[in-house]
Nucleic acid binder design. Structure first.
Lengths: 143, 143
DNA sequence: ATCGGAATTAGAATAATTCCAATTTCTACT
DNA sequence: AGTAGAAATTGGAATTATTCTAATTCCGAT
Protein backbone atom coordinates (compact mmCIF):
# COMPACT_ATOMS: atom_id res chain seq x y z
CA UNK A 1 0.00 0.00 0.00
CA UNK A 2 1.68 3.16 -1.14
CA UNK A 3 0.09 5.94 0.80
CA UNK A 4 -3.52 5.40 1.67
CA UNK A 5 -2.36 7.04 4.90
CA UNK A 6 -2.45 10.42 3.30
CA UNK A 7 -5.42 10.06 1.03
CA UNK A 8 -7.98 11.88 3.08
CA UNK A 9 -11.39 11.00 1.66
CA UNK A 10 -11.19 8.75 -1.34
CA UNK A 11 -14.39 7.89 -3.13
CA UNK A 12 -14.92 4.16 -2.71
CA UNK A 13 -14.83 3.69 -6.47
CA UNK A 14 -11.36 5.21 -6.59
CA UNK A 15 -9.93 2.52 -4.35
CA UNK A 16 -8.00 -0.26 -6.08
CA UNK A 17 -9.51 -3.67 -6.71
CA UNK A 18 -6.93 -5.32 -4.53
CA UNK A 19 -4.98 -4.23 -1.47
CA UNK A 20 -2.40 -6.19 0.47
CA UNK A 21 -3.59 -9.33 -1.22
CA UNK A 22 -7.19 -8.65 -0.26
CA UNK A 23 -9.75 -8.50 -3.00
CA UNK A 24 -11.56 -5.20 -2.59
CA UNK A 25 -15.24 -5.80 -3.09
CA UNK A 26 -17.77 -3.00 -3.32
CA UNK A 27 -18.59 -3.33 0.36
CA UNK A 28 -14.98 -3.45 1.48
CA UNK A 29 -14.24 -0.34 -0.53
CA UNK A 30 -17.19 1.43 1.02
CA UNK A 31 -16.11 0.46 4.53
CA UNK A 32 -12.50 1.44 3.92
CA UNK A 33 -13.49 4.75 2.35
CA UNK A 34 -15.55 5.55 5.43
CA UNK A 35 -12.65 4.80 7.74
CA UNK A 36 -10.25 6.82 5.61
CA UNK A 37 -12.75 9.64 5.33
CA UNK A 38 -13.81 10.65 8.81
CA UNK A 39 -10.88 9.63 10.94
CA UNK A 40 -12.82 9.68 14.15
CA UNK A 41 -12.25 6.06 15.14
CA UNK A 42 -15.75 4.82 14.41
CA UNK A 43 -17.19 1.64 15.88
CA UNK A 44 -18.50 -1.14 13.63
CA UNK A 45 -21.95 0.21 14.14
CA UNK A 46 -20.89 3.76 13.25
CA UNK A 47 -19.44 2.40 10.04
CA UNK A 48 -22.65 0.48 9.38
CA UNK A 49 -24.80 3.56 9.81
CA UNK A 50 -22.56 5.66 7.56
CA UNK A 51 -22.36 2.96 4.93
CA UNK A 52 -26.12 2.85 4.63
CA UNK A 53 -26.16 6.29 3.01
CA UNK A 54 -24.56 5.11 -0.17
CA UNK A 55 -25.35 1.44 0.18
CA UNK A 56 -28.69 0.95 1.89
CA UNK A 57 -28.65 -2.82 1.62
CA UNK A 58 -25.35 -3.47 3.35
CA UNK A 59 -25.71 -5.60 6.45
CA UNK A 60 -24.06 -5.24 9.80
CA UNK A 61 -22.59 -8.72 9.44
CA UNK A 62 -20.93 -7.59 6.25
CA UNK A 63 -19.51 -4.56 7.97
CA UNK A 64 -18.02 -6.86 10.60
CA UNK A 65 -16.71 -9.17 7.89
CA UNK A 66 -15.15 -6.31 5.99
CA UNK A 67 -13.57 -4.85 9.08
CA UNK A 68 -12.09 -8.17 10.07
CA UNK A 69 -10.72 -8.64 6.54
CA UNK A 70 -9.22 -5.14 6.50
CA UNK A 71 -7.71 -5.58 9.94
CA UNK A 72 -6.21 -8.98 9.24
CA UNK A 73 -4.66 -7.66 6.06
CA UNK A 74 -3.19 -4.73 7.97
CA UNK A 75 -5.11 -2.13 6.03
CA UNK A 76 -6.78 -0.68 9.09
CA UNK A 77 -6.16 -1.05 12.80
CA UNK A 78 -8.55 -2.16 15.49
CA UNK A 79 -8.51 -0.02 18.61
CA UNK A 80 -9.79 -1.09 22.00
CA UNK A 81 -10.51 0.84 25.15
CA UNK A 82 -11.22 -1.43 28.04
CA UNK A 83 -14.47 -3.19 27.30
CA UNK A 84 -15.96 -0.61 24.98
CA UNK A 85 -16.79 -1.70 21.46
CA UNK A 86 -13.87 -1.83 19.08
CA UNK A 87 -13.03 1.16 16.97
CA UNK A 88 -11.21 1.35 13.68
CA UNK A 89 -8.31 3.52 12.66
CA UNK A 90 -6.67 3.97 9.24
CA UNK A 91 -3.40 5.24 10.69
CA UNK A 92 -0.88 2.43 10.35
CA UNK A 93 2.04 4.38 11.77
CA UNK A 94 3.21 3.21 15.17
CA UNK A 95 1.02 5.10 17.55
CA UNK A 96 -1.33 4.74 20.46
CA UNK A 97 -4.59 6.28 21.58
CA UNK A 98 -5.78 8.81 24.07
CA UNK A 99 -9.44 9.18 24.86
CA UNK A 100 -10.59 12.50 26.25
CA UNK A 101 -13.01 11.51 28.98
CA UNK A 102 -14.91 14.76 28.57
CA UNK A 103 -15.77 14.52 24.90
CA UNK A 104 -15.13 10.83 24.29
CA UNK A 105 -12.97 11.84 21.35
CA UNK A 106 -10.00 9.61 20.62
CA UNK A 107 -6.70 11.17 19.62
CA UNK A 108 -3.75 9.44 18.04
CA UNK A 109 -0.59 9.79 20.09
CA UNK A 110 2.74 9.09 18.47
CA UNK A 111 5.91 7.85 20.08
CA UNK A 112 8.86 10.12 20.63
CA UNK A 113 11.28 9.74 17.81
CA UNK A 114 13.56 6.74 18.04
CA UNK A 115 12.00 5.28 21.18
CA UNK A 116 11.94 1.48 21.32
CA UNK A 117 9.89 -0.73 23.59
CA UNK A 118 12.96 -2.02 25.40
CA UNK A 119 13.81 1.55 26.33
CA UNK A 120 10.95 1.79 28.74
CA UNK A 121 9.84 -1.75 29.51
CA UNK A 122 11.73 -4.45 31.42
CA UNK A 123 10.94 -7.13 28.86
CA UNK A 124 12.14 -10.65 29.62
CA UNK A 125 14.94 -11.13 27.13
CA UNK A 126 14.09 -13.01 24.01
CA UNK A 127 10.52 -11.80 23.97
CA UNK A 128 9.12 -11.28 20.54
CA UNK A 129 6.30 -8.76 20.50
CA UNK A 130 3.71 -9.30 17.80
CA UNK A 131 1.13 -6.88 19.00
CA UNK A 132 1.17 -3.79 21.16
CA UNK A 133 -1.73 -1.69 22.30
CA UNK A 134 -1.46 1.38 24.48
CA UNK A 135 -4.65 3.10 25.57
CA UNK A 136 -4.76 6.26 27.61
CA UNK A 137 -7.71 8.01 29.16
CA UNK A 138 -7.82 11.41 30.72
CA UNK A 139 -8.53 15.05 30.18
CA UNK A 140 -7.04 17.74 28.07
CA UNK A 141 -5.78 20.65 30.10
CA UNK A 142 -8.06 23.67 29.78
CA UNK A 143 -5.69 26.55 30.50
CA UNK B 1 -3.47 -0.85 52.29
CA UNK B 2 -0.10 -1.65 53.74
CA UNK B 3 1.23 -4.55 51.75
CA UNK B 4 -1.39 -6.91 50.43
CA UNK B 5 0.96 -6.89 47.47
CA UNK B 6 3.31 -9.20 49.22
CA UNK B 7 0.89 -11.38 51.09
CA UNK B 8 0.85 -14.37 48.84
CA UNK B 9 -2.14 -16.51 49.76
CA UNK B 10 -4.06 -15.09 52.67
CA UNK B 11 -6.96 -17.09 54.00
CA UNK B 12 -10.09 -15.05 53.32
CA UNK B 13 -10.84 -14.93 57.04
CA UNK B 14 -7.49 -13.28 57.67
CA UNK B 15 -8.35 -10.30 55.49
CA UNK B 16 -9.44 -7.16 57.29
CA UNK B 17 -13.06 -6.14 57.60
CA UNK B 18 -12.44 -2.96 55.66
CA UNK B 19 -9.99 -1.99 52.92
CA UNK B 20 -9.64 1.36 51.23
CA UNK B 21 -12.99 2.39 52.61
CA UNK B 22 -14.65 -0.74 51.24
CA UNK B 23 -16.48 -2.95 53.67
CA UNK B 24 -15.07 -6.43 53.17
CA UNK B 25 -17.92 -8.90 53.20
CA UNK B 26 -17.45 -12.64 53.24
CA UNK B 27 -17.78 -12.82 49.47
CA UNK B 28 -15.44 -9.91 48.79
CA UNK B 29 -12.83 -11.48 51.03
CA UNK B 30 -13.19 -14.77 49.20
CA UNK B 31 -12.82 -13.10 45.81
CA UNK B 32 -9.86 -11.04 46.94
CA UNK B 33 -8.14 -14.03 48.52
CA UNK B 34 -8.49 -15.92 45.24
CA UNK B 35 -6.94 -13.09 43.29
CA UNK B 36 -4.12 -12.68 45.80
CA UNK B 37 -3.60 -16.42 45.89
CA UNK B 38 -3.10 -17.67 42.37
CA UNK B 39 -1.76 -14.64 40.57
CA UNK B 40 -2.59 -15.94 37.16
CA UNK B 41 -4.88 -13.11 36.07
CA UNK B 42 -8.15 -15.03 36.31
CA UNK B 43 -11.31 -13.98 34.52
CA UNK B 44 -14.51 -13.31 36.43
CA UNK B 45 -15.64 -16.78 35.56
CA UNK B 46 -12.37 -18.32 36.75
CA UNK B 47 -12.85 -16.55 40.05
CA UNK B 48 -16.43 -17.77 40.21
CA UNK B 49 -15.40 -21.38 39.65
CA UNK B 50 -12.65 -21.19 42.27
CA UNK B 51 -14.87 -19.45 44.77
CA UNK B 52 -17.40 -22.25 44.59
CA UNK B 53 -15.01 -24.64 46.36
CA UNK B 54 -15.24 -22.84 49.65
CA UNK B 55 -18.50 -21.04 49.04
CA UNK B 56 -20.81 -23.14 46.91
CA UNK B 57 -23.70 -20.71 47.01
CA UNK B 58 -21.86 -17.67 45.69
CA UNK B 59 -23.36 -16.36 42.45
CA UNK B 60 -21.63 -15.13 39.34
CA UNK B 61 -23.37 -11.79 39.72
CA UNK B 62 -21.83 -11.46 43.16
CA UNK B 63 -18.40 -12.22 41.76
CA UNK B 64 -18.91 -9.45 39.23
CA UNK B 65 -20.15 -7.13 41.95
CA UNK B 66 -17.19 -7.92 44.17
CA UNK B 67 -14.72 -7.45 41.36
CA UNK B 68 -16.20 -4.12 40.43
CA UNK B 69 -16.09 -3.02 44.07
CA UNK B 70 -12.47 -4.13 44.46
CA UNK B 71 -11.45 -2.47 41.20
CA UNK B 72 -13.17 0.81 41.91
CA UNK B 73 -11.53 0.94 45.33
CA UNK B 74 -8.15 0.28 43.77
CA UNK B 75 -7.62 -2.98 45.58
CA UNK B 76 -7.22 -4.99 42.40
CA UNK B 77 -6.68 -4.03 38.77
CA UNK B 78 -8.74 -4.98 35.76
CA UNK B 79 -6.71 -6.14 32.79
CA UNK B 80 -7.94 -6.21 29.21
CA UNK B 81 -6.57 -7.82 26.10
CA UNK B 82 -8.41 -6.72 23.02
CA UNK B 83 -11.91 -8.09 23.32
CA UNK B 84 -11.18 -11.03 25.55
CA UNK B 85 -12.94 -11.17 28.87
CA UNK B 86 -11.44 -9.00 31.56
CA UNK B 87 -8.90 -10.44 33.91
CA UNK B 88 -7.97 -9.38 37.40
CA UNK B 89 -4.59 -8.64 38.88
CA UNK B 90 -3.60 -7.89 42.49
CA UNK B 91 -0.38 -6.13 41.52
CA UNK B 92 -0.95 -2.42 42.02
CA UNK B 93 2.55 -1.34 41.08
CA UNK B 94 2.81 0.51 37.79
CA UNK B 95 3.14 -2.25 35.25
CA UNK B 96 1.71 -3.63 32.07
CA UNK B 97 0.92 -7.04 30.64
CA UNK B 98 2.40 -9.43 28.17
CA UNK B 99 0.45 -12.43 26.95
CA UNK B 100 2.41 -15.36 25.61
CA UNK B 101 0.45 -16.41 22.55
CA UNK B 102 1.65 -19.97 22.91
CA UNK B 103 0.49 -20.67 26.44
CA UNK B 104 -1.99 -17.84 26.91
CA UNK B 105 -0.20 -17.02 30.15
CA UNK B 106 -0.09 -13.36 31.11
CA UNK B 107 3.07 -11.92 32.60
CA UNK B 108 3.46 -8.65 34.44
CA UNK B 109 5.98 -6.33 32.79
CA UNK B 110 7.38 -3.44 34.76
CA UNK B 111 8.64 -0.13 33.49
CA UNK B 112 12.32 0.68 33.42
CA UNK B 113 13.23 2.62 36.50
CA UNK B 114 12.42 6.28 36.34
CA UNK B 115 10.68 6.22 32.99
CA UNK B 116 7.79 8.64 32.62
CA UNK B 117 5.05 8.65 30.00
CA UNK B 118 6.26 11.90 28.51
CA UNK B 119 9.63 10.27 27.89
CA UNK B 120 8.28 8.07 25.17
CA UNK B 121 4.96 9.60 24.08
CA UNK B 122 4.32 12.87 22.24
CA UNK B 123 1.49 13.86 24.55
CA UNK B 124 -0.34 17.09 23.71
CA UNK B 125 0.77 19.39 26.49
CA UNK B 126 -1.60 19.81 29.37
CA UNK B 127 -2.93 16.29 29.06
CA UNK B 128 -3.82 14.71 32.33
CA UNK B 129 -3.72 10.92 32.17
CA UNK B 130 -6.09 9.16 34.51
CA UNK B 131 -5.74 5.70 33.15
CA UNK B 132 -3.12 3.84 31.18
CA UNK B 133 -3.23 0.34 29.83
CA UNK B 134 -0.44 -1.33 27.88
CA UNK B 135 -1.05 -4.81 26.52
CA UNK B 136 1.54 -6.81 24.64
CA UNK B 137 1.18 -10.10 22.85
CA UNK B 138 3.89 -12.29 21.47
CA UNK B 139 6.14 -15.21 22.10
CA UNK B 140 8.89 -15.92 24.53
CA UNK B 141 12.17 -16.69 22.83
CA UNK B 142 12.98 -20.40 22.99
CA UNK B 143 16.77 -20.41 22.80
C1' DA C 1 -34.05 -7.09 69.22
C1' DT C 2 -34.94 -4.37 65.25
C1' DC C 3 -34.61 -1.01 61.57
C1' DG C 4 -32.58 0.52 57.41
C1' DG C 5 -29.22 0.45 54.14
C1' DA C 6 -26.09 -2.37 51.74
C1' DA C 7 -24.94 -6.81 49.70
C1' DT C 8 -26.21 -11.04 47.65
C1' DT C 9 -28.79 -13.90 44.69
C1' DA C 10 -31.07 -16.06 40.49
C1' DG C 11 -32.54 -15.13 36.52
C1' DA C 12 -33.71 -11.98 32.82
C1' DA C 13 -31.88 -8.51 29.80
C1' DT C 14 -28.45 -6.23 27.00
C1' DA C 15 -24.66 -5.27 23.87
C1' DA C 16 -21.20 -6.55 20.89
C1' DT C 17 -19.85 -9.83 18.06
C1' DT C 18 -19.90 -14.28 15.67
C1' DC C 19 -22.10 -17.99 13.44
C1' DC C 20 -25.06 -20.13 9.97
C1' DA C 21 -27.27 -21.42 5.90
C1' DA C 22 -29.13 -19.49 1.86
C1' DT C 23 -28.31 -16.46 -1.84
C1' DT C 24 -25.53 -13.57 -4.82
C1' DT C 25 -21.47 -12.21 -7.03
C1' DC C 26 -16.87 -12.95 -8.93
C1' DT C 27 -13.24 -15.23 -11.33
C1' DA C 28 -11.38 -18.30 -14.20
C1' DC C 29 -11.90 -21.35 -17.71
C1' DT C 30 -13.99 -23.04 -21.91
C1' DA D 1 -20.32 -14.91 -23.89
C1' DG D 2 -21.60 -19.10 -20.71
C1' DT D 3 -20.86 -21.55 -16.64
C1' DA D 4 -18.76 -24.03 -12.58
C1' DG D 5 -16.67 -23.30 -8.29
C1' DA D 6 -15.11 -20.24 -4.88
C1' DA D 7 -15.69 -16.35 -2.17
C1' DA D 8 -18.54 -12.70 -0.31
C1' DT D 9 -22.84 -10.98 1.30
C1' DT D 10 -27.06 -11.22 3.78
C1' DG D 11 -30.61 -11.61 7.59
C1' DG D 12 -31.38 -13.72 11.36
C1' DA D 13 -30.23 -16.73 15.08
C1' DA D 14 -26.77 -17.80 18.49
C1' DT D 15 -23.15 -16.78 21.64
C1' DT D 16 -20.49 -14.49 25.18
C1' DA D 17 -19.44 -11.37 28.61
C1' DT D 18 -21.47 -8.42 31.40
C1' DT D 19 -25.14 -5.69 33.60
C1' DC D 20 -29.67 -5.11 35.41
C1' DT D 21 -33.69 -6.18 38.36
C1' DA D 22 -36.36 -7.33 42.01
C1' DA D 23 -36.61 -10.18 45.88
C1' DT D 24 -34.28 -11.76 49.80
C1' DT D 25 -30.69 -11.76 53.26
C1' DC D 26 -27.26 -9.80 56.02
C1' DC D 27 -25.12 -6.57 59.23
C1' DG D 28 -24.08 -2.72 61.92
C1' DA D 29 -25.95 0.98 64.58
C1' DT D 30 -29.46 2.43 67.39
Amino acid sequence: MISLQHIKSPKPEDLPSELEGLRMTKQRREVLAIILGERDHPTANDVYVRAQNRMPTISLATVYNCLEALVSHHIVRQVNFERESSRYCPNLEDHCHFQDEESGIIHDVIFKKGVKLEDFLELPQGTEINHLEISLKGRIGSE
